[in-house]
């Protein structure tokens, strides 16, 4: 929501009178957790989609994140069970942590899908259903900047579908994600500016994706952004462990008695979602 953005701006105002310095700190120990990067982006004009899921493991904050290999990872079509649709994803190369498989786009769009990962004796599961998005109408490079000269303004325009609750995820390239909800522009053509904290050279290309997501993923992405940028000083948002939609189903007997309350810290990070993606690129002049 744009207003969350304003909180970040308010926090940045502190930078006027503040100074920042990199320091060394001793960090507490961690128990490693599995990270499941399973945002399946779908171009509905293609009849087959290559679903790619990246599996990694948490590391110390100052360390490097490494890919992990799991015992098995499958995606099942819940609406078409037993029809040979329990598809195992294959690792592209041993130790890469990247698992891929081709799926029928029509099935991905219309059915509910179930992800299961077997890893080190634990079973992690998640469920997802396709979300529709809208195309990007236009991308333009703007003249403005917010705080400093070293910023680039990108204007993005799109048209929301009226009378339904829509949530959007923007991938502004270079690992910059932004989420928005249509509450204040339902059914309208809407344009806003996104500011990159960098200056681009002529002939640089920016690839932007607009994806339709649901409310839970919208909340998840906002949480990720808060935690990765936070606020400074007194505007710091509380530190939370961002739980995704993966459930530890190891102690499951049947669907009704699953209860992880006694072991709340044993879970996998990341998110499993199937989204419609529209892309557009712009080349800097």
């Amino acid at each position: 929501m744009k207003l969350r953005y304003s909180l970040l701006i308010l926090a940045s105002l502190q930078l006027f009178v503040s100074c920042q310095e990199v320091i060394t700190v001793d960090l507490p120990d961690l128990t490693p957790k599995l990270i499941v990067d399973a945002l399946i982006r779908i171009d509905t004009t293609q009849s087959f989609t290559l679903a790619e899921i990246k599996l990694t493991e948490t590391s110390d904050f100052f360390g490097t994140i490494h890919p992990v290999s799991v015992d098995q990872i499958t995606m099942s079509d819940l609406d078409n069970p037993g029809n040979n649709t329990d598809q195992v994803l294959d690792e592209t190369s041993p130790g890469s942590g990247i698992y891929q498989q081709l799926f029928s786009t029509e099935r991905l769009v219309n059915d509910r899908w179930f992800l299961q990962i077997d890893f080190r004796g634990e079973i992690y599961v998640a469920e997802a259903q396709f979300d529709y998005g809208v195309p990007i109408d236009e991308l333009t490079i703007g003249e403005g900047n917010l705080f400093s000269e070293d910023q680039t303004e990108l204007l993005i325009r799109y048209t929301d579908v009226g009378d339904r609750e829509d949530y959007y995820l923007f991938d502004f390239d270079f690992g910059e994600l932004f989420a928005s909800e249509d509450a204040f522009y339902d059914g309208q053509t809407f344009e806003f500016s996104y500011f990159y904290d960098r200056v681009f050279m002529p002939q640089d290309t920016i690839n932007v994706s607009l994806m339709g997501i649901d409310r839970d993923l919208f909340n998840y992405v906002n949480l990720l952004r808060d935690q990765s940028q936070g606020g400074f000083g007194p505007f710091a948002t509380p530190a939370v462990s961002v739980r995704g939609n993966l459930i530890n189903a190891t102690s499951i007997n049947n669907d009704d008695t699953l209860n992880n309350v006694n072991d709340p810290d044993n879970y996998a990070l990341g998110y499993f979602s199937i989204v419609q993606e529209f892309k557009k690129s712009i080349v800097i002049e």
Binding site: L30, P32, G175, L224, Q227, P238, V240, S241
Partner: peptide
Amino acid sequence: TNYPVGQFEFQGIVVPYYGLRNQ
């Protein structure tokens, strides 16, 4: 304050990951 007990990455965003609050 809160120091992260680890980090993870999702779609290119690097996110610190925390334990119990305000320790």
